[in-house]
Design a protein around this nucleic acid. Structure first.
Lengths: 192, 192
DNA sequence: TACAAATTTCAGTAATTACTGAAATAACCG
DNA sequence: CGGTTATTTCAGTAATTACTGAAATTTGTA
């Protein structure tokens, strides 16, 4: 591996981290390298920097591409493919979340829906189905929330995140104002 | 494996999913089984249901325990350990997020902080450091947001999630009210 | 279309991770 | 204590996943 100590620390860390997410070391390292690079890199440069074989790098890039995490660039007078990550880190985050949703959440929801239409036979299945229902609803709620957040442009999303739970106070304020004249909401007496 | 088709579908799915998160098949399946069970199960029951060896189950339970995802129970007149998951699914979610934060986010932040105090030598390191800074700040922001959300009791959290981006409109409303008389905020003219 | 450069594929091998059974240890009970 | 049951550890093996080099394919160029 042929990198400055600073680069090396970062790259190795993301190699490690990759393993903890179903992504392998190579892929993690390639992405880390591209993330830190000021210019698009070609496959041979990646080989040199990380010490992987050409074919391994090729597969890693393919994997990253299937996650839609890298961008292919072509430089003038150079036939080789060059790769970058999106400039905007929020685009990266959005892609990551979107992909994990597609690959993990959607299949899970789909499996749950399938099982939930079956008729439970006996107490055990009834209990199990109730638990699956609970899980299904929770995941769906989080997914809906995410879909909704996804629509916000970045600056607004950031504002919202920075506000955090403070925003909840506004919500309660609004609710109280509405409630003052004797609104229709039921059981909202003490939400604290 | 000795399970109803319904249980089997769910258990196998979470075995699969486990692999995609650094968690292995055994661990995923054990957790799925416990999640669906109406009563605490002992290790031998888990062996029977899933067809793993006793030692494998023991290791799986140890792993789950290290994630704080299972609870040890003792039944009257039975020396054996019995295991459950928390009744409240939100407790499970909170634990999962908390643990991943501890195991993945914190080490990453710590690595980034270490690298960011070093003096960059040359353009490349300067660029790289800027990118790492950007990443650090983003992660920290998300972490702070999470810390904040964590404090909310579940019902409020659910309300907030269900509101989704609608809550942002309240925020803007509030801001506009403040701005009407000619507030001090700068450059907030058109946030849409 | 023929050649060269770039990239991908894939079979074989290396490395890692998962799993087992046997033995050791711990917990409980008379 | 001594015996019994429950649990964990761990060395060895099985299974899976990662990685390589050589060959095949694709892409671009004259």
């Amino acid at each position: 591996m042929n990198l400055s100590p600073m680069h090396q620390t970062f790259v190795l860390h993301f190699g490690e981290m990759g393993s903890r997410w179903g992504i392998n070391r190579t892929v993690g390292q390639i992405y880390a390298l591209l993330y830190l690079s000021a210019r698009p890199l070609n496959a041979d440069e990646i080989c040199d920097s990380l010490g992987f074989s050409r074919s391994n790098v090729s597969m890693g890039l393919k994997e990253l591409d299937s996650w839609n995490l890298i961008r292919l660039k072509h430089l003038p007078n150079d036939r080789r493919d060059h790769f970058t990550v999106p400039d905007d880190i929020w685009e990266i985050v959005r892609t990551l979340v979107e992909q994990r949703r597609k690959r993990e959440i959607e299949p899970t929801l789909s499996m749950l829906r399938d099982v939930l239409v079956e008729k439970p036979s006996g107490k055990d299945e009834q209990f199990a189905q109730a638990k699956m229902h609970e899980m299904h609803d929770l995941i769906e709620m989080l997914t809906n929330w995410h879909t909704d957040m996804e629509k916000l442009e970045t600056q607004r999303l950031v504002n919202l995140l920075k506000l955090g739970s403070k925003v909840y106070k506004l919500y309660e304020m609004k609710n109280n104002i509405r409630l003052l004249p004797g609104g229709k909401d039921k059981k909202k007496k003490d939400t604290r």
